[in-house]
Design a protein around this nucleic acid. Structure first.
Length: 155
DNA sequence: CTGGATCTACTGC
DNA sequence: GCAGTAGATCCAG
């Protein structure tokens, strides 16, 4: 297991790779634990993160291994991956397409191992309010606003 | 605003 | 296994 850190506008991201250098998990943390210096296996992802936070990248092209994720969660996350940059949908919109309930969708998104890469911040409540986010609601607000304000670059 | 419906995963037995 | 509960919700009343 390897950890790499990335200082982003929404906080310090801890990026975890498994022993075969496959992307495993992303979270927010306060401090650097075990920095891997010059991690060859992470440069491509870091490059994309830099561009994304600059507002110059709309989708990550990165392979990751989906292990320890239930079939249900996979179905939800796969659909989430198709929501375009700068757009938002609601929990119930997802639920209808998967024949499940909005709350179950929320539970699945909470377990999203790769927030930002799998853009679960694009899912909000149907009353227009923000809903929850595993990296913190403030981060979610920031990401949505960031995408909204940079969207025009890509037209 | 409140109460009930809804579906998944987690807990305790 | 099975019952009970807690959610990143929703909708009607």
């Amino acid at each position: 297991m390897y950890r790499v850190y990335f200082k982003s506008p929404i906080g310090l991201l801890e990026i975890i790779f498994d022993d075969s250098f496959s992307l495993k998990k992303i979270l927010i943390t306060d401090f650097v634990k075990d920095d891997e210096k010059e991690p060859e296996f992470a440069v491509e992802l870091i490059k994309q993160l830099i561009l994304y936070f600059r507002g110059e990248l709309t989708a990550f092209s990165y392979s990751f291994n989906i292990k320890h994720v239930s079939d249900f969660d996979k179905r939800v996350l796969e659909l989430i991956g198709k929501i375009p940059y700068g757009k938002t949908v609601t929990y119930s919109w997802i639920a209808k397409r998967l024949n499940t309930s909005p709350r179950a969708v929320g539970q699945a998104l909470k377990r999203n191992p790769l927030p930002i890469i799998i853009p679960c911040h694009r899912v909000i409540k149907s009353d227009g309010t923000i809903g929850g986010y595993s990296l913190g609601v403030e981060s979610k607000r920031w990401l949505i606003e960031h995408e909204r304000s940079t969207l025009s670059k890509f037209l």
